[in-house]
């Protein structure tokens, strides 16, 4: 990924912290996912506006004391996987996540 990457939470999901685990249910097929701490941080920060590298630097590097390049590489792989599950949107341009679900 050479261009900046933007991520946004899918709006058709259900999500809730159960203890320290983030549980997400896909709106497409009702699949249930349990996100680990890193994935949960990425998902919760996915506002569609903040670039992924900024999220990694601000949320992950500071929290886990890891170098930015390694963290970004891992995060890119993680967001691709979450996108394949349909619970995250990934784009090379900003996505608007601020709007409520369609129909409002």
């Amino acid at each position: 990924m050479n261009n900046r990457t933007y991520i946004a939470r899918a709006t058709d999901v259900a999500a809730r912290m159960i203890g320290d685990e983030l549980m997400i249910m896909s709106g497409k097929n009702s699949s249930l996912f349990s996100l680990n701490e890193t994935a949960a941080i990425l998902w919760q920060a996915a506002d569609g506006i903040t670039p992924l590298d900024d999220i990694v630097e601000q949320k992950l590097c500071a929290e886990f004391e890891i170098d930015a390049a390694t963290a970004l590489k891992d995060a890119e792989a993680m967001v691709i996987e979450l996108a394949e599950f349909g619970i995250l949107q990934v784009s090379e341009s900003p996505l608007s996540d601020s709007k409520p679900p369609a129909g409002a």
Binding site: V13, A14, R16, G103
Partner: peptide, 13 residues
């Protein structure tokens, strides 16, 4: 629908 929209904003299943 106002109630349902609020529920979905809160990400209930």
């Amino acid at each position: 629908f106002e109630i349902l929209e609020h529920a979905r904003k809160l990400q209930f299943s």
